[in-house]
Design a protein around this nucleic acid. Structure first.
Lengths: 247, 247
DNA sequence: CGGACTCTTGAAATTATTCAATCGGGGTGG
DNA sequence: CCACCCCGATTGAATAATTTCAAGAGTCCG
């Protein structure tokens, strides 16, 4: 399977076969990384961007006690630090969660691509804006939802992102994160995550164990999360949760 | 003063005079808007993007009870919904906070610009990534800080953004938001905002009243906020708060 | 078997929300 | 001019959500 196979997969803007081939020509190196490895530290200068081919990664910011707030969760097909190309240096750190395979695309090659293929360039821009849209939805999650809603929202989003790349059937999917990881994602303590997971389980909504998720009641999950997949810019939203802010 | 005067002002990537002139040629219309007016609703298709020339605006997402989470706060010089150009439709709403002057740039004109001036195009991309960087820092704010820290963080950020455009001297600046607005920004109730503002006042850190902010102890504000302006990509960071996550 | 790590639970303390009132200033109509 | 009203700010008290501290239990693996 090609390295760019899952990039922009199922989105309102996606790649043509030519564009996919074009992008793949730019890959300078494919690398296999162990789990829980930091690739890039906050403030580090970058000369290449990273396409995640297999595995899961996170981007995070640390507080003055070294505790992490995860600002993005990445699945295969994500151009994890494409924004490092225009920005030059990252304002956050980047690490693997699981063992991962990544493809590196040198910024010099992207530079040329913008001139040669402006249409493709705009799709790259689109891709970084998709990340921004997810950031916004995460702000909603942290700002307006409490524990159970936050976890439910993360599960609903992750399911929606894994479906187009064939990693979720809408009921079960692999999610190799422990409770401490979840805590860093949804902004609560790992102890509280534990209690939240119990209520989700006891309420028959979802069962989350290290390694995987089983969604028991999709509708209630969506409602609890107030999840509306608009912001994922999917071609055909797999879930049809109630729209927000339209009453 | 020109309508693009403050765009990317003081950033690591900024405009040349030619580029500024080029952008201004693309403006199709300048409009004056009353305070508290919604310009764009979530999911609405866009044909032009909005440069904020004067006044303050917010972008927000509503929950199922219609309560807002503000996802971005905009100051003069911000290209408020430039991301609407590649994205086509917005995943959030856009409204004025105060009376405002905006300049509209049709997407068709931006389309041409990408071909004619790819360098400038990349700066536009950079500008949207700056917004994403701010989203990430807001995620840190909501995920890792509690009441007082969140408010302090917002004040520190706003000061840092207002300085390059001459709207803050680092001690006093106009901030025409009430406590309910602040609540929607920092993700706590307006009643709790009230109590937080009192403690900031009583601790001699800052005085916030509708209309303006007076910073009494900048160092303590920065520390409380764990504020590090890295993510604003300023040419010369005005504040030198302690770096995070580097010990 | 002994760690090391993760998950789990309890209890107390802290933080934030909710509900209910009150206060205060700026307008407005009588 | 003044009573009235509205909106935002403020406060108190009860409740709920979350964190912190402390301790066990389960599991995997060398």
């Amino acid at each position: 399977m090609s390295v760019m196979q899952n990039f922009l997969c199922g989105r309102t803007v996606s790649l043509t076969e030519d564009e996919r081939a074009h992008l793949e020509q730019l890959v300078s190196e494919i690398r296999r990384l162990p789990a829980r490895t930091t690739l890039v530290d906050r403030n580090e200068a970058l000369r290449a961007s990273t396409m995640l081919v297999e595995g899961f990664m996170v981007r995070f910011i640390e507080d003055d006690g070294g505790r992490r707030q995860v600002v993005a969760f990445h699945v295969p097909g994500d151009f994890v630090d494409l924004h490092g190309f225009p920005l030059q240096r990252l304002d956050h750190s980047l690490a693997t969660l699981t063992e991962a395979e990544v493809a590196l695309v040198p910024h010099a090659a992207l530079e040329r691509l913008l001139i040669e293929a402006p249409d493709l360039g705009r799709k790259l821009w689109f891709s970084t804006l998709l990340d921004a849209a997810m950031h916004r939805e995460w702000l909603f999650r942290l700002g307006r939802l409490e524990g159970p809603g936050r976890v439910a929202h993360f599960l609903a989003e992750t399911d929606a992102r894994l479906r187009p790349i064939g990693l979720s059937d809408g009921r079960n999917f692999a999610l190799p994160v422990n409770q401490a990881d979840l805590a860093e994602i949804v902004g609560i303590t790992s102890i509280h995550v534990n209690r939240v997971l119990r209520t989700l389980r006891e309420d028959g909504i979802a069962i989350i164990r290290r390694g995987g998720v089983e969604i028991l009641d999709f509708d209630r999950l969506i409602r609890l999360a107030q999840f509306d997949p608009t912001y994922l810019y999917l071609k055909s939203p797999t879930s049809t949760g109630p729209r927000r802010g339209t009453e």
